[in-house]
Amino acid sequence: MNPSGISRRQQFEKHQRRRSTVIATVSTVGAIALLVLLVPMIPGWDRVRASFLDGNTFRETFPKLPGRFWYDIQIFLICTPCILALGLLIAFARNVRSPALYPLRLFATLYTDVMRGVPMILWITIIGFGVPGLIQNRTWGKAVVWAGVALVVAYSAYVAEVFRAGIESVHESQRAAARSLGLSSRQTMVHIVLPQAVRRVVPALMNDMVSLQKDVALVSIVGPIEVLRQAGIAKAKFYNFTPYIGAAILFLCVSIPLTRLTDHLLARERRRMQGTAVR
């Protein structure tokens, strides 16, 4: 020990850390400077900038976008709980063992395969345009409602698979322990299997929610003036793609924090799993 109270090893590592920070800072600043210098030298950059990054168009069109983006967020917020609930139900249906309920199990299996096997935009077209034509009602005949339904039915299939994987990941010995206490199979599912399964799949579910948050824009094809549609209108007016960049920025404002949060949860889950080894 030297007088400052830190060991040789700590001193060495402190020095190393300081050195790494300096190197990382210098190289990052360098890389950015290089980009700023080089990108404008790309042939045709002026035209790219004029059509995608036009300041005037941005100032004119951007203020209208957040309000429209709120429309997307609302669809997202309404769809999410429906997707989670339906996904869980389908996961249960795929797990039923009773022979009387075999048709349910078969249907659930078919459902997840079919829903996941067709592009989202096709479901939104089929259901969002198709069903309102069958209904002569002001609320329930709205295309956007059925486009939302399309998001729910398709995403619930993905989410069901996530839940199912979570349920199957709970070790058989946990069920055995619960059953040996006299808990019924339903009680075992509710009190032992599901709580552990849900905890494990939260990061995977968050991943699906990040995708959903972006796929909400697909609803624009059936007509509502949400952010993508609004940006399209602005594009047509100004003959310029900058409004789309504005819309992209709004999506990023939501999806990047969500992605970071997901990564954080994943890392925590991984640490937790490694930390629970038998001591």
């Binding site: 010995s173 946990q174 055995a176 322990a177 709580p195 552990q196």
Partner: peptide, 10 residues
């Protein structure tokens, strides 16, 4: 009682 304890971790 089981070899691997099987307490409920949650």
């Amino acid at each position: 009682v089981f070899q691997s304890f099987n307490l409920f971790p949650h």
